[in-house]
Amino acid sequence: MRIALLLALSASLNAATNYAVRTIALPGGSDRGIAMDYLAYDASTKSLWVPAGNTGAVDVLDTKTGKTRQIAGLPTKEITTGERKRVVGPSSASVGRNVVYVGNRANSSVCAYDSRSLKQLRCATIDAMPDGVSFVSPSNEVWVTTPRDQSIRVLDASTLKEKAKIALDGAPEGYAVDAKHKTFFTNLEDKDETLAIDVQTKKTTARWKSACGEAGPRGLVIAPDGKFLFVACTDKVESFRLGAKPELLSSADTGAGVDSFDFSQGMHQLFVGAARTGQLTIIDVDSSGHLKSSTQVTTAQGARNGVLAGGTVYLAHSQGSELIAVSRSTK
């Protein structure tokens, strides 16, 4: 037994050394850090969009050259949550057709920017603070989760006019879009449930327990073929087989502090940042949807919400006013 454990540990350590970790400082950093939440990668321009909340900016990183451009001068606002005060601003991004949509918590706006020139094209204001922003291609819409009023707002992607309000009985957290089957997925964090919503009818077509417990579910990722949905809890990721009655297949521990995460179709792997334990867990996904942790790479406490861009995972590290980039070592 001891030999088997030592061999497993050795294999894990060797796998971890196959990854290089580097940091990328963002403009406007201070001892307060830079508040980051949802990042978005635009494969057509090889650019990572980083809404940088309290700085009132969106930083756009060219992942090929390492240069950063900035959309500056965006609204910010100080809010109080319990006894904690913080400054909010741009906080979420989603890539559309030659456009990137950015949600701003300061003024409850969603704005569209040209993906190459970064020029602001249009903006709209909704009557609730936006959380996640998601471009839904089958219907050419932008879906905005608004957990404070337990709803999802549906905007026309071309005009940003609000088309519908989907009322829920819980706080939506995270999203995934299955364009092939025209389905939008989100979690109800306070209910420990996951929902499937028909993009055309805006009706809930399936609802099931996320099995995350009291802390509730966080991010979601849909497998490209639409057969499996991966749901993040705060300390693990679960795999569900989709169908008339979604079935929990498997789970893999990640360490504490998980929010959103990403999936590589080519490598059949999930990349999950755990903020509290300061690590990136790489999880293998087999053809039947079962999960197995393969590698853990040390990052930094607070690093989370990894986005895969090419062969590199970029994690938001708000406390350090930086991104942490993890990629396979070339040594």
Results as ranks from 00 to 15, higher is better:
residue 3 I to V: 00
residue 4 A to Q: 01
residue 8 A to I: 06
residue 13 L to N: 07
residue 17 T to A: 07
residue 19 Y to L: 06
residue 20 A to K: 14
residue 26 L to Q: 07
residue 30 S to I: 14
residue 30 S to C: 15
residue 33 G to N: 10
residue 36 M to D: 14
residue 39 L to N: 03
residue 40 A to H: 14
residue 43 A to G: 08
residue 44 S to Y: 01
residue 47 S to M: 10
residue 49 W to R: 01
residue 49 W to S: 00
residue 50 V to E: 00
residue 52 A to E: 09
residue 52 A to I: 06
residue 54 N to G: 10
residue 55 T to M: 09
residue 55 T to I: 02
residue 56 G to W: 12
residue 59 D to N: 08
residue 62 D to M: 15
residue 63 T to Q: 02
residue 63 T to H: 04
residue 65 T to W: 00
residue 68 T to L: 13
residue 68 T to D: 09
residue 70 Q to E: 10
residue 71 I to Q: 06
residue 73 G to Y: 13
residue 73 G to P: 14
residue 75 P to N: 11
residue 75 P to Q: 03
residue 76 T to S: 01
residue 77 K to Y: 04
residue 78 E to P: 09
residue 80 T to F: 07
residue 81 T to S: 14
residue 81 T to D: 10
residue 82 G to W: 01
residue 82 G to A: 06
residue 83 E to T: 08
residue 86 R to W: 12
residue 87 V to F: 04
residue 91 S to W: 13
residue 91 S to F: 12
residue 92 S to Y: 00
residue 93 A to R: 09
residue 94 S to H: 02
residue 107 N to S: 10
residue 109 S to Y: 06
residue 117 S to H: 14
residue 120 Q to N: 15
residue 120 Q to R: 15
residue 123 C to S: 13
residue 125 T to F: 07
residue 126 I to V: 11
residue 127 D to S: 13
residue 128 A to R: 06
residue 134 S to M: 09
residue 143 W to Q: 07
residue 147 P to T: 13
residue 147 P to H: 10
residue 149 D to L: 08
residue 149 D to G: 11
residue 153 R to D: 12
residue 154 V to P: 06
residue 157 A to R: 01
residue 161 K to V: 04
residue 164 A to F: 12
residue 165 K to A: 04
residue 166 I to C: 01
residue 167 A to E: 14
residue 169 D to K: 09
residue 169 D to L: 01
residue 170 G to D: 08
residue 174 G to Y: 02
residue 174 G to T: 10
residue 175 Y to W: 09
residue 177 V to N: 10
residue 177 V to Y: 07
residue 185 F to D: 02
residue 189 E to Q: 15
residue 193 E to L: 06
residue 194 T to I: 13
residue 198 D to L: 03
residue 200 Q to R: 03
residue 202 K to Y: 11
residue 204 T to L: 00
residue 206 A to P: 03
residue 210 S to F: 05
residue 212 C to F: 00
residue 215 A to E: 06
residue 218 R to I: 01
residue 219 G to E: 02
residue 222 I to G: 12
residue 223 A to E: 04
residue 224 P to M: 11
residue 229 L to Y: 07
residue 233 C to P: 08
residue 235 D to M: 06
residue 235 D to N: 15
residue 241 R to P: 00
residue 242 L to W: 06
residue 244 A to R: 12
residue 244 A to D: 12
residue 246 P to A: 04
residue 254 T to W: 03
residue 256 A to Y: 08
residue 258 V to K: 05
residue 260 S to E: 11
residue 261 F to A: 03
residue 262 D to I: 08
residue 262 D to N: 06
residue 268 H to M: 08
residue 274 A to V: 05
residue 277 T to F: 12
residue 279 Q to C: 04
residue 284 D to G: 02
residue 289 G to R: 06
residue 295 T to R: 02
residue 299 T to H: 09
residue 302 G to V: 05
residue 303 A to E: 04
residue 306 G to E: 00
residue 307 V to I: 07
residue 307 V to T: 00
residue 308 L to W: 13
residue 309 A to T: 01
residue 315 L to D: 03
residue 316 A to V: 02
residue 316 A to P: 01
residue 316 A to H: 05
residue 317 H to M: 09
residue 317 H to K: 08
residue 323 L to V: 08
residue 325 A to S: 11
residue 326 V to I: 08
residue 326 V to Q: 01
residue 327 S to M: 02
residue 330 T to A: 04
